[in-house]
Design a protein around this nucleic acid. Structure first.
Length: 423
RNA sequence: GGAGAGAUGGCCGAGUGGUCGAAGGCGCACGCCUGGAGAGCGUGUAGACGUUAAAAGCGUCUCCUGGGUUCAAAUCCCAGUCUCUCCGCCA
Protein backbone atom coordinates (compact mmCIF):
# COMPACT_ATOMS: atom_id res chain seq x y z
CA UNK A 1 0.00 0.00 0.00
CA UNK A 2 1.25 3.46 -0.85
CA UNK A 3 1.67 6.03 1.89
CA UNK A 4 -1.15 8.56 1.53
CA UNK A 5 1.16 11.18 3.04
CA UNK A 6 3.61 10.59 0.23
CA UNK A 7 0.81 11.04 -2.29
CA UNK A 8 -0.24 14.23 -0.52
CA UNK A 9 3.22 15.78 -0.26
CA UNK A 10 4.73 14.53 -3.49
CA UNK A 11 1.98 13.70 -5.99
CA UNK A 12 4.24 14.19 -9.01
CA UNK A 13 6.68 11.55 -7.76
CA UNK A 14 3.85 9.07 -7.26
CA UNK A 15 2.34 9.92 -10.64
CA UNK A 16 5.69 9.31 -12.35
CA UNK A 17 6.17 6.00 -10.56
CA UNK A 18 2.74 4.73 -11.50
CA UNK A 19 3.25 5.88 -15.07
CA UNK A 20 6.16 3.45 -15.29
CA UNK A 21 3.62 0.75 -14.52
CA UNK A 22 1.34 2.08 -17.22
CA UNK A 23 -1.19 3.74 -14.91
CA UNK A 24 -1.46 7.37 -13.87
CA UNK A 25 -5.07 8.42 -13.56
CA UNK A 26 -5.50 7.59 -9.88
CA UNK A 27 -3.47 10.23 -8.09
CA UNK A 28 -6.11 12.95 -8.46
CA UNK A 29 -8.79 10.61 -7.07
CA UNK A 30 -6.59 9.89 -4.09
CA UNK A 31 -5.93 13.56 -3.44
CA UNK A 32 -9.61 14.46 -3.66
CA UNK A 33 -10.73 11.70 -1.29
CA UNK A 34 -7.94 12.57 1.12
CA UNK A 35 -8.86 16.24 1.16
CA UNK A 36 -12.58 15.58 1.63
CA UNK A 37 -11.83 13.25 4.48
CA UNK A 38 -9.52 15.64 6.31
CA UNK A 39 -11.95 18.54 6.02
CA UNK A 40 -14.75 16.57 7.65
CA UNK A 41 -12.39 15.11 10.20
CA UNK A 42 -11.35 18.52 11.47
CA UNK A 43 -14.98 19.60 11.82
CA UNK A 44 -16.14 16.46 13.59
CA UNK A 45 -13.18 16.42 15.96
CA UNK A 46 -13.98 19.96 17.08
CA UNK A 47 -17.56 18.88 17.77
CA UNK A 48 -16.37 15.86 19.72
CA UNK A 49 -14.08 18.09 21.73
CA UNK A 50 -17.06 20.23 22.63
CA UNK A 51 -19.08 17.17 23.58
CA UNK A 52 -16.33 15.90 25.85
CA UNK A 53 -16.03 19.22 27.63
CA UNK A 54 -19.78 19.65 28.10
CA UNK A 55 -20.22 16.04 29.23
CA UNK A 56 -17.74 16.59 32.01
CA UNK A 57 -19.57 19.78 32.95
CA UNK A 58 -22.85 17.83 33.10
CA UNK A 59 -21.17 15.30 35.35
CA UNK A 60 -20.06 18.07 37.68
CA UNK A 61 -23.50 19.69 37.74
CA UNK A 62 -25.21 16.38 38.48
CA UNK A 63 -22.76 15.64 41.24
CA UNK A 64 -23.74 19.01 42.74
CA UNK A 65 -27.48 18.24 42.22
CA UNK A 66 -27.82 21.11 39.76
CA UNK A 67 -30.17 20.84 36.79
CA UNK A 68 -28.36 20.27 33.45
CA UNK A 69 -31.25 19.52 31.11
CA UNK A 70 -30.60 22.49 28.79
CA UNK A 71 -27.00 21.32 28.23
CA UNK A 72 -28.20 17.77 27.60
CA UNK A 73 -30.65 19.06 24.99
CA UNK A 74 -27.90 21.03 23.28
CA UNK A 75 -25.69 17.97 23.13
CA UNK A 76 -28.40 15.98 21.39
CA UNK A 77 -28.25 18.23 18.35
CA UNK A 78 -24.45 18.21 18.40
CA UNK A 79 -24.59 14.43 18.44
CA UNK A 80 -26.81 14.33 15.36
CA UNK A 81 -24.23 16.37 13.49
CA UNK A 82 -21.39 14.14 14.71
CA UNK A 83 -23.27 11.05 13.58
CA UNK A 84 -23.82 12.49 10.12
CA UNK A 85 -20.18 13.50 9.66
CA UNK A 86 -18.86 10.20 11.05
CA UNK A 87 -20.94 8.37 8.45
CA UNK A 88 -19.51 10.47 5.63
CA UNK A 89 -15.98 10.04 6.91
CA UNK A 90 -16.39 6.27 7.16
CA UNK A 91 -17.56 6.16 3.56
CA UNK A 92 -14.68 8.31 2.34
CA UNK A 93 -12.13 6.25 4.26
CA UNK A 94 -13.48 3.05 2.81
CA UNK A 95 -13.22 4.43 -0.71
CA UNK A 96 -9.74 5.79 -0.08
CA UNK A 97 -8.56 2.55 1.50
CA UNK A 98 -9.98 0.37 -1.27
CA UNK A 99 -8.31 2.56 -3.85
CA UNK A 100 -4.97 2.45 -2.04
CA UNK A 101 -5.19 -1.34 -1.72
CA UNK A 102 -5.67 -1.68 -5.47
CA UNK A 103 -2.67 0.47 -6.47
CA UNK A 104 0.64 -1.33 -7.14
CA UNK A 105 3.99 -0.49 -5.62
CA UNK A 106 6.24 2.17 -7.14
CA UNK A 107 9.32 0.81 -8.96
CA UNK A 108 12.75 1.65 -7.55
CA UNK A 109 14.81 4.12 -9.57
CA UNK A 110 17.14 1.48 -11.03
CA UNK A 111 14.31 -0.67 -12.40
CA UNK A 112 14.28 -0.63 -16.22
CA UNK A 113 11.16 1.08 -17.55
CA UNK A 114 9.05 -0.87 -20.03
CA UNK A 115 5.65 -2.37 -20.54
CA UNK A 116 6.54 -6.09 -20.44
CA UNK A 117 9.30 -8.73 -20.40
CA UNK A 118 10.79 -7.25 -23.59
CA UNK A 119 12.30 -4.54 -21.42
CA UNK A 120 13.84 -6.93 -18.90
CA UNK A 121 17.62 -6.73 -18.52
CA UNK A 122 19.87 -9.77 -18.27
CA UNK A 123 22.33 -9.22 -15.40
CA UNK A 124 24.55 -12.32 -15.57
CA UNK A 125 24.76 -15.92 -16.73
CA UNK A 126 26.16 -18.93 -14.94
CA UNK A 127 27.09 -22.32 -16.40
CA UNK A 128 27.02 -23.62 -19.93
CA UNK A 129 23.98 -25.29 -21.49
CA UNK A 130 24.81 -28.98 -22.04
CA UNK A 131 25.48 -30.34 -25.53
CA UNK A 132 23.63 -33.49 -26.53
CA UNK A 133 24.52 -36.06 -29.18
CA UNK A 134 20.78 -36.69 -29.49
CA UNK A 135 17.65 -34.56 -29.50
CA UNK A 136 16.95 -33.66 -25.88
CA UNK A 137 13.46 -34.57 -24.70
CA UNK A 138 11.08 -32.43 -22.66
CA UNK A 139 10.86 -33.50 -19.03
CA UNK A 140 7.34 -34.90 -19.28
CA UNK A 141 8.44 -37.44 -21.85
CA UNK A 142 11.50 -38.38 -19.84
CA UNK A 143 9.45 -38.67 -16.65
CA UNK A 144 6.67 -40.73 -18.20
CA UNK A 145 9.11 -43.17 -19.82
CA UNK A 146 10.93 -43.63 -16.49
CA UNK A 147 7.54 -44.09 -14.78
CA UNK A 148 8.32 -41.39 -12.23
CA UNK A 149 5.84 -38.72 -13.45
CA UNK A 150 2.20 -39.63 -14.06
CA UNK A 151 0.21 -36.84 -15.65
CA UNK A 152 -2.73 -38.99 -16.74
CA UNK A 153 -3.48 -40.32 -13.32
CA UNK A 154 -2.92 -36.84 -11.85
CA UNK A 155 -5.69 -35.67 -14.14
CA UNK A 156 -7.88 -38.60 -13.12
CA UNK A 157 -7.52 -37.73 -9.46
CA UNK A 158 -7.90 -33.99 -9.72
CA UNK A 159 -7.91 -32.64 -13.26
CA UNK A 160 -5.58 -30.74 -15.55
CA UNK A 161 -2.40 -29.28 -14.04
CA UNK A 162 -2.10 -31.92 -11.34
CA UNK A 163 0.65 -34.53 -11.39
CA UNK A 164 1.47 -37.70 -9.50
CA UNK A 165 5.13 -38.33 -8.62
CA UNK A 166 6.09 -41.97 -8.26
CA UNK A 167 9.07 -43.93 -6.98
CA UNK A 168 12.34 -42.10 -7.58
CA UNK A 169 10.38 -39.12 -8.93
CA UNK A 170 8.75 -38.63 -5.53
CA UNK A 171 12.09 -39.32 -3.92
CA UNK A 172 13.78 -36.70 -6.08
CA UNK A 173 11.21 -34.07 -5.15
CA UNK A 174 11.65 -34.86 -1.46
CA UNK A 175 15.44 -34.90 -1.80
CA UNK A 176 15.39 -31.44 -3.36
CA UNK A 177 13.18 -30.03 -0.60
CA UNK A 178 15.54 -31.33 2.08
CA UNK A 179 18.65 -30.28 0.21
CA UNK A 180 17.36 -26.73 -0.26
CA UNK A 181 16.21 -26.40 3.35
CA UNK A 182 19.52 -27.73 4.69
CA UNK A 183 21.51 -25.37 2.49
CA UNK A 184 19.61 -22.26 3.55
CA UNK A 185 19.49 -23.25 7.21
CA UNK A 186 23.10 -24.40 7.59
CA UNK A 187 24.99 -22.29 5.07
CA UNK A 188 22.89 -19.13 4.75
CA UNK A 189 21.58 -18.68 8.30
CA UNK A 190 17.82 -18.89 7.75
CA UNK A 191 15.38 -20.19 10.36
CA UNK A 192 12.97 -22.84 9.18
CA UNK A 193 9.22 -22.19 9.38
CA UNK A 194 6.51 -24.74 8.67
CA UNK A 195 3.34 -22.62 8.48
CA UNK A 196 -0.35 -23.35 7.90
CA UNK A 197 -1.33 -23.88 4.26
CA UNK A 198 -4.65 -22.13 4.82
CA UNK A 199 -4.71 -18.50 5.92
CA UNK A 200 -7.33 -15.87 6.63
CA UNK A 201 -8.24 -12.89 4.48
CA UNK A 202 -6.10 -10.42 6.45
CA UNK A 203 -2.94 -12.30 5.53
CA UNK A 204 -3.85 -12.28 1.85
CA UNK A 205 -4.41 -8.53 1.99
CA UNK A 206 -1.18 -8.09 3.94
CA UNK A 207 1.07 -9.48 1.22
CA UNK A 208 -1.00 -8.03 -1.64
CA UNK A 209 -2.83 -11.03 -3.14
CA UNK A 210 -6.14 -9.46 -2.11
CA UNK A 211 -8.28 -7.62 -2.90
CA UNK A 212 -7.10 -7.50 -6.51
CA UNK A 213 -6.30 -11.11 -7.40
CA UNK A 214 -9.01 -13.08 -5.66
CA UNK A 215 -9.87 -15.05 -8.80
CA UNK A 216 -6.38 -16.57 -8.82
CA UNK A 217 -6.75 -17.94 -5.29
CA UNK A 218 -8.34 -21.12 -4.01
CA UNK A 219 -10.93 -20.41 -1.38
CA UNK A 220 -11.70 -23.10 1.17
CA UNK A 221 -15.39 -23.69 1.71
CA UNK A 222 -16.22 -23.70 5.45
CA UNK A 223 -14.83 -20.42 6.73
CA UNK A 224 -13.10 -17.51 5.04
CA UNK A 225 -9.85 -19.34 4.30
CA UNK A 226 -7.54 -19.29 1.32
CA UNK A 227 -5.01 -21.91 0.23
CA UNK A 228 -1.63 -20.21 0.20
CA UNK A 229 -0.27 -19.45 -3.29
CA UNK A 230 3.23 -19.25 -1.76
CA UNK A 231 4.83 -19.51 1.68
CA UNK A 232 5.46 -15.77 1.35
CA UNK A 233 1.92 -15.21 2.61
CA UNK A 234 2.01 -16.96 5.99
CA UNK A 235 5.70 -16.29 6.64
CA UNK A 236 5.68 -12.55 5.86
CA UNK A 237 2.52 -12.21 7.94
CA UNK A 238 4.06 -14.07 10.87
CA UNK A 239 4.93 -10.80 12.62
CA UNK A 240 2.00 -8.72 11.37
CA UNK A 241 0.76 -6.12 13.89
CA UNK A 242 4.06 -6.41 15.76
CA UNK A 243 6.78 -3.90 16.57
CA UNK A 244 10.11 -5.68 16.25
CA UNK A 245 13.35 -4.86 18.01
CA UNK A 246 15.95 -3.50 15.59
CA UNK A 247 18.59 -5.88 16.94
CA UNK A 248 16.50 -8.83 15.77
CA UNK A 249 16.72 -7.60 12.19
CA UNK A 250 17.25 -8.85 9.62
CA UNK A 251 14.90 -11.76 10.27
CA UNK A 252 15.59 -14.54 7.75
CA UNK A 253 13.09 -17.37 7.33
CA UNK A 254 13.09 -20.33 4.99
CA UNK A 255 9.92 -22.30 4.51
CA UNK A 256 8.92 -25.34 2.51
CA UNK A 257 5.24 -25.49 1.61
CA UNK A 258 2.94 -26.74 -1.05
CA UNK A 259 1.56 -23.82 -3.08
CA UNK A 260 -1.86 -23.57 -4.70
CA UNK A 261 -2.67 -21.38 -7.68
CA UNK A 262 -5.77 -21.27 -9.81
CA UNK A 263 -3.74 -19.91 -12.77
CA UNK A 264 -7.00 -18.35 -13.89
CA UNK A 265 -5.47 -16.27 -16.68
CA UNK A 266 -3.10 -18.93 -17.97
CA UNK A 267 -5.37 -21.11 -20.11
CA UNK A 268 -3.35 -22.64 -22.95
CA UNK A 269 0.06 -21.74 -21.51
CA UNK A 270 2.45 -24.50 -20.40
CA UNK A 271 -0.30 -27.08 -20.52
CA UNK A 272 2.13 -29.99 -20.48
CA UNK A 273 4.62 -30.94 -17.83
CA UNK A 274 5.51 -29.56 -14.44
CA UNK A 275 5.98 -25.90 -15.30
CA UNK A 276 2.51 -24.61 -14.45
CA UNK A 277 0.59 -26.65 -11.86
CA UNK A 278 -2.35 -25.88 -9.60
CA UNK A 279 -0.39 -27.46 -6.74
CA UNK A 280 3.39 -27.38 -6.49
CA UNK A 281 6.13 -27.43 -3.90
CA UNK A 282 8.38 -24.50 -3.18
CA UNK A 283 11.10 -23.57 -0.73
CA UNK A 284 10.74 -19.88 -0.02
CA UNK A 285 13.15 -17.36 1.48
CA UNK A 286 11.68 -14.41 3.40
CA UNK A 287 13.50 -11.48 4.97
CA UNK A 288 12.32 -8.65 7.19
CA UNK A 289 14.83 -5.85 7.42
CA UNK A 290 15.47 -2.13 7.84
CA UNK A 291 14.98 0.31 4.94
CA UNK A 292 18.68 1.14 4.72
CA UNK A 293 19.76 -2.51 4.41
CA UNK A 294 17.02 -3.88 2.18
CA UNK A 295 18.84 -3.29 -1.13
CA UNK A 296 21.90 -5.19 0.10
CA UNK A 297 19.73 -7.95 1.61
CA UNK A 298 18.00 -8.24 -1.75
CA UNK A 299 21.30 -8.94 -3.49
CA UNK A 300 22.32 -11.61 -0.97
CA UNK A 301 18.87 -13.17 -1.19
CA UNK A 302 19.37 -13.61 -4.93
CA UNK A 303 22.80 -15.11 -4.30
CA UNK A 304 21.33 -17.55 -1.77
CA UNK A 305 18.85 -18.75 -4.38
CA UNK A 306 21.54 -18.92 -7.07
CA UNK A 307 23.64 -21.14 -4.84
CA UNK A 308 21.03 -23.90 -5.18
CA UNK A 309 21.36 -23.88 -8.96
CA UNK A 310 25.14 -23.73 -8.77
CA UNK A 311 25.37 -26.72 -6.43
CA UNK A 312 23.01 -28.64 -8.72
CA UNK A 313 25.15 -27.52 -11.63
CA UNK A 314 22.18 -26.18 -13.58
CA UNK A 315 22.89 -23.35 -16.07
CA UNK A 316 20.88 -20.21 -15.42
CA UNK A 317 20.74 -16.49 -15.89
CA UNK A 318 19.67 -13.60 -13.67
CA UNK A 319 17.19 -11.13 -15.12
CA UNK A 320 16.16 -7.76 -13.72
CA UNK A 321 12.46 -7.33 -14.45
CA UNK A 322 11.13 -4.19 -16.07
CA UNK A 323 8.57 -1.94 -14.41
CA UNK A 324 5.77 -3.48 -16.46
CA UNK A 325 6.75 -7.11 -15.80
CA UNK A 326 7.08 -6.89 -12.03
CA UNK A 327 4.50 -8.24 -9.65
CA UNK A 328 1.93 -5.97 -8.03
CA UNK A 329 3.69 -5.55 -4.67
CA UNK A 330 7.33 -5.50 -5.79
CA UNK A 331 9.53 -2.43 -6.00
CA UNK A 332 12.34 -4.38 -7.64
CA UNK A 333 12.55 -7.97 -8.78
CA UNK A 334 15.18 -10.36 -10.11
CA UNK A 335 14.13 -13.61 -11.77
CA UNK A 336 16.40 -16.63 -11.93
CA UNK A 337 15.83 -18.47 -15.19
CA UNK A 338 17.11 -22.02 -15.53
CA UNK A 339 18.15 -23.52 -18.83
CA UNK A 340 15.67 -26.11 -20.09
CA UNK A 341 17.08 -28.12 -23.03
CA UNK A 342 13.65 -29.58 -23.86
CA UNK A 343 12.38 -26.02 -24.40
CA UNK A 344 15.72 -24.76 -25.73
CA UNK A 345 15.31 -21.68 -23.58
CA UNK A 346 15.62 -20.21 -20.08
CA UNK A 347 12.53 -20.48 -17.87
CA UNK A 348 11.76 -18.80 -14.55
CA UNK A 349 12.61 -20.93 -11.53
CA UNK A 350 12.85 -18.24 -8.89
CA UNK A 351 11.54 -14.74 -8.38
CA UNK A 352 13.34 -12.56 -5.81
CA UNK A 353 11.60 -9.34 -4.86
CA UNK A 354 12.13 -6.38 -2.61
CA UNK A 355 8.76 -4.96 -1.54
CA UNK A 356 10.06 -1.97 0.38
CA UNK A 357 7.46 -0.98 2.99
CA UNK A 358 4.54 -1.83 0.67
CA UNK A 359 3.58 -5.10 2.38
CA UNK A 360 4.68 -3.90 5.82
CA UNK A 361 2.22 -1.01 5.65
CA UNK A 362 -0.61 -3.40 4.75
CA UNK A 363 0.36 -5.89 7.45
CA UNK A 364 1.30 -3.19 10.00
CA UNK A 365 4.71 -4.75 10.38
CA UNK A 366 7.04 -2.35 12.18
CA UNK A 367 10.31 -2.04 14.07
CA UNK A 368 11.78 0.36 16.59
CA UNK A 369 15.35 1.68 16.43
CA UNK A 370 15.58 2.85 20.04
CA UNK A 371 13.46 2.11 23.12
CA UNK A 372 11.73 5.49 22.85
CA UNK A 373 11.83 5.89 19.09
CA UNK A 374 8.79 6.10 16.84
CA UNK A 375 8.00 2.79 15.11
CA UNK A 376 8.88 2.52 11.42
CA UNK A 377 7.75 0.06 8.79
CA UNK A 378 10.19 -2.75 8.00
CA UNK A 379 11.12 -3.69 4.47
CA UNK A 380 10.03 -7.15 3.34
CA UNK A 381 11.73 -9.35 0.75
CA UNK A 382 11.26 -12.82 -0.55
CA UNK A 383 12.42 -15.20 -3.22
CA UNK A 384 12.00 -18.79 -4.28
CA UNK A 385 14.86 -20.91 -3.22
CA UNK A 386 13.66 -22.68 -5.40
CA UNK A 387 10.42 -23.83 -7.04
CA UNK A 388 10.82 -27.58 -6.57
CA UNK A 389 8.73 -28.92 -9.46
CA UNK A 390 10.54 -26.75 -11.95
CA UNK A 391 13.85 -27.88 -10.47
CA UNK A 392 12.81 -31.50 -11.07
CA UNK A 393 11.99 -30.55 -14.66
CA UNK A 394 15.38 -28.85 -15.04
CA UNK A 395 17.27 -31.86 -13.65
CA UNK A 396 15.43 -34.31 -15.87
CA UNK A 397 16.14 -32.24 -18.96
CA UNK A 398 19.73 -31.22 -18.24
CA UNK A 399 20.86 -34.57 -16.87
CA UNK A 400 19.13 -36.80 -19.43
CA UNK A 401 21.16 -39.39 -21.33
CA UNK A 402 20.79 -41.04 -24.73
CA UNK A 403 19.26 -44.20 -23.21
CA UNK A 404 16.49 -42.21 -21.50
CA UNK A 405 18.00 -42.46 -18.04
CA UNK A 406 18.77 -39.43 -15.88
CA UNK A 407 21.92 -38.87 -13.82
CA UNK A 408 21.30 -37.65 -10.29
CA UNK A 409 23.30 -34.48 -9.46
CA UNK A 410 26.06 -35.49 -7.10
CA UNK A 411 25.02 -33.24 -4.25
CA UNK A 412 21.57 -34.88 -4.16
CA UNK A 413 22.78 -38.48 -3.96
CA UNK A 414 23.03 -38.57 -0.16
CA UNK A 415 19.40 -37.43 -0.11
CA UNK A 416 18.50 -40.17 -2.64
CA UNK A 417 19.84 -43.12 -0.68
CA UNK A 418 22.93 -43.13 -2.88
CA UNK A 419 21.06 -43.52 -6.18
CA UNK A 420 23.26 -42.13 -8.98
CA UNK A 421 21.07 -42.75 -12.01
CA UNK A 422 17.30 -42.88 -12.46
CA UNK A 423 16.57 -45.53 -15.07
C1' G B 1 -20.27 -30.94 18.08
C1' G B 2 -22.12 -29.88 23.60
C1' A B 3 -21.29 -27.07 28.40
C1' G B 4 -18.72 -23.30 30.91
C1' A B 5 -14.92 -19.33 31.78
C1' G B 6 -12.26 -15.43 29.84
C1' A B 7 -9.87 -11.33 26.43
C1' U B 8 -7.34 -4.31 29.84
C1' G B 9 -0.65 -1.03 28.10
C1' G B 10 6.04 -4.81 26.46
C1' C B 11 4.34 -8.48 30.57
C1' C B 12 1.28 -9.42 35.14
C1' G B 13 -2.96 -7.26 37.09
C1' A B 14 -6.94 -3.54 39.39
C1' G B 15 -11.05 -1.22 37.71
C1' U B 16 -19.27 -2.45 36.82
C1' G B 17 -21.65 4.50 33.90
C1' G B 18 -18.84 10.66 34.86
C1' U B 19 -11.77 14.49 36.27
C1' C B 20 -9.93 6.50 33.53
C1' G B 21 -5.60 6.43 28.35
C1' A B 22 -6.59 3.68 32.63
C1' A B 23 -4.26 2.08 40.04
C1' G B 24 -0.38 -1.18 41.55
C1' G B 25 3.60 -4.43 40.27
C1' C B 26 7.33 -6.32 36.80
C1' G B 27 10.32 -5.05 32.74
C1' C B 28 12.87 -1.18 30.10
C1' A B 29 15.48 3.86 29.66
C1' C B 30 17.89 7.91 32.08
C1' G B 31 19.79 10.06 36.63
C1' C B 32 21.47 9.74 41.88
C1' C B 33 24.11 6.47 45.04
C1' U B 34 28.81 2.83 44.55
C1' G B 35 35.86 1.63 43.75
C1' G B 36 32.61 -1.49 40.48
C1' A B 37 28.17 -4.32 40.33
C1' G B 38 23.72 -5.27 42.98
C1' A B 39 20.23 -3.32 46.21
C1' G B 40 17.95 1.30 47.14
C1' C B 41 15.99 6.18 45.62
C1' G B 42 14.09 9.59 41.78
C1' U B 43 12.20 10.60 36.84
C1' G B 44 10.24 8.75 32.42
C1' U B 45 8.05 4.91 29.70
C1' A B 46 1.46 2.84 24.01
C1' G B 47 -0.22 3.55 19.15
C1' A B 48 -2.93 5.73 15.00
C1' C B 49 -4.99 10.01 12.92
C1' G B 50 -5.68 15.43 12.47
C1' U B 51 -3.63 20.47 12.99
C1' U B 52 1.95 22.26 11.43
C1' A B 53 6.85 23.24 6.28
C1' A B 54 8.44 20.32 10.52
C1' A B 55 8.72 19.92 15.71
C1' A B 56 6.57 21.31 20.24
C1' G B 57 1.84 21.97 21.77
C1' C B 58 -3.23 20.99 21.17
C1' G B 59 -7.30 17.88 19.60
C1' U B 60 -9.76 13.10 18.12
C1' C B 61 -9.82 7.84 18.44
C1' U B 62 -8.16 3.12 20.52
C1' C B 63 -9.24 -1.28 27.28
C1' C B 64 -10.40 -8.31 21.39
C1' U B 65 -13.53 -6.67 16.72
C1' G B 66 -18.05 -4.46 14.79
C1' G B 67 -22.75 -2.38 15.91
C1' G B 68 -26.14 -0.14 19.75
C1' U B 69 -28.02 2.54 24.45
C1' U B 70 -26.55 7.35 26.93
C1' C B 71 -25.29 14.28 27.56
C1' A B 72 -21.21 10.67 29.02
C1' A B 73 -19.01 3.52 28.10
C1' A B 74 -13.05 -0.34 29.83
C1' U B 75 -17.75 -0.54 32.62
C1' C B 76 -24.63 -1.58 30.09
C1' C B 77 -27.01 -4.29 25.47
C1' C B 78 -26.48 -7.18 20.64
C1' A B 79 -23.48 -9.85 17.05
C1' G B 80 -18.81 -11.89 15.89
C1' U B 81 -13.54 -13.52 16.58
C1' C B 82 -9.98 -15.76 19.50
C1' U B 83 -8.07 -18.29 24.03
C1' C B 84 -8.68 -21.70 28.13
C1' U B 85 -11.31 -25.89 30.92
C1' C B 86 -14.56 -30.23 30.84
C1' C B 87 -17.31 -33.80 27.70
C1' G B 88 -17.76 -36.02 22.73
C1' C B 89 -15.17 -37.20 18.13
C1' C B 90 -10.47 -37.91 15.87
C1' A B 91 -4.67 -38.69 12.88
Amino acid sequence: MLDIKLVRTNPEYVRAGLAKRGMDTLVDDLLQLDQDRRERLTTVENLKNKRNIVSKEIGRLKAGKIDASNLIEEMKTVNDEIKRLDGEIRELEEKLNNLLLSIPNLPQDDVPVGRDEQANVEIRRWGTPPEFSFTPQPHWEIGEKLDILDFERGARLSGARFTVLKGLGARLERALINFMLDLHINQHGYTEILPPYMVNRDCMVGTGQLPKFEEDMYKVAPGDYFLIPTAEVPVTNLHREEILDVEHLPIKYVSYTACFRAEAGAAGRDTRGLIRQHQFNKVELVKLTTPETSAQEHETLVQDAEKVLQLLNLPYRVVLLSSGDMGFAASKCYDLEVWLPGFNTYREISSCSNFGDFQARRANLRFRREPEAKPEFVHTLNGSGLAVGRTVAAILENYQQADGSVVVPEILRPYMGGVAVIK
